[in-house]
């Protein structure tokens, strides 16, 4: 079985983002970028499946500007076999991403698509579910355990009340949550090897997909910051403040 893993290039999770002065978005110039952490978990899962003999090829795809090829190289250095880069603007919306991924699925026929449950930049949490419905496939979202047997997958989902177990028909879409695994680091020899792995480039036009944005960004602004608080000396003062000043207990 071939496993397809879409990976997104986002601002590194450690960076404190800054809003642009003209309120058109956040500052991306000279900011450290990295693979979306959830996508790293998806890549790791695909690699473990291949290592356990449950997958024979791990294909990664990234949609965005030329620099997204670096993100693909990162996945190849982790151990993925092959990459596809689809040239598109950085701000492409999940709906358009899902359409492009559908075109890739139709060409490549993977048995499973593993995605991160959300990207930590737009926090949309949409792409996997959209792709699943476009393909008419089942979905397991927010997954912390995955077990595939024949044409079914048993997934454990992290839901608001705890955990939920469902069974889905393959081929399927699985979106991964934080506790599925801990992704490996790429070793130096593997980073070198990754440079020689195959990486195809395409455009949205090649796939005949309309990627025009549907939403208009009116403005992006900083949230109101909280007024500075105080340090209390001891527990007694804390309780006194909560009772008599804040009146919350």
């Amino acid at each position: 079985m071939k496993v397809l893993v879409p990976v997104k290039r986002v601002i590194d999770y450690n960076v404190k983002v800054r809003v642009k002065a003209d309120q058109s978005g956040v500052e991306l110039a000279n900011v450290k970028m990295a693979m979306n952490p959830f996508d790293e978990i998806a890549v790791e899962q695909a690699l473990r499946m291949r290592e356990a003999g449950n997958a024979d090829e791990v294909l990664v795809v990234s949609i965005g500007p030329a620099q997204n090829q670096e993100t693909i190289r990162t996945a190849l250095a982790m151990g993925a076999d092959r990459g596809i880069h689809i040239e598109a603007p950085h701000e492409i919306e999940p709906l358009a991403v899902a359409k492009l991924l559908k075109a890739v699925v139709n060409e490549e026929n993977p048995g499973l698509v593993l995605l991160g449950k959300q990207a930590i930049d737009d926090d949309c949490n949409q792409t996997g579910q959209m792709l699943a419905s476009m393909l008419g496939w089942a979905q397991g979202t927010f997954v912390s355990a995955l077990e595939i047997a024949n044409d079914k997958a048993k997934v454990t989902r992290e839901v608001d009340g705890g955990l939920e177990h469902i069974e889905i028909t393959m081929p399927a879409i699985v979106t991964v949550d934080l506790r599925l695994n801990e992704p490996r680091y790429a070793s130096l020899p593997n980073i070198m090897k990754a440079k020689k792995k195959p990486l195809d480039s395409k455009t949205a036009g090649d796939l005949s997909v309309d990627i025009e944005p549907r939403l208009t960004i009116v403005k992006v602004e900083e949230p109101e910051s909280r007024a500075a608080g105080i340090k209390v000396a001891d527990v007694q003062e804390l309780v006194n403040k909560l009772r008599n000043e804040a009146k919350v207990i």
Binding site: I11, K16, V17, V19, V26, I120, D121, D122, D123, I217, V218, K219, V220, E221, E222, P223
Partner: peptide, 9 residues
């Protein structure tokens, strides 16, 4: 967006 570090309209 960005974990609430920016608000998008």
């Amino acid at each position: 967006i960005y974990a609430g570090n920016a608000l998008s309209t």
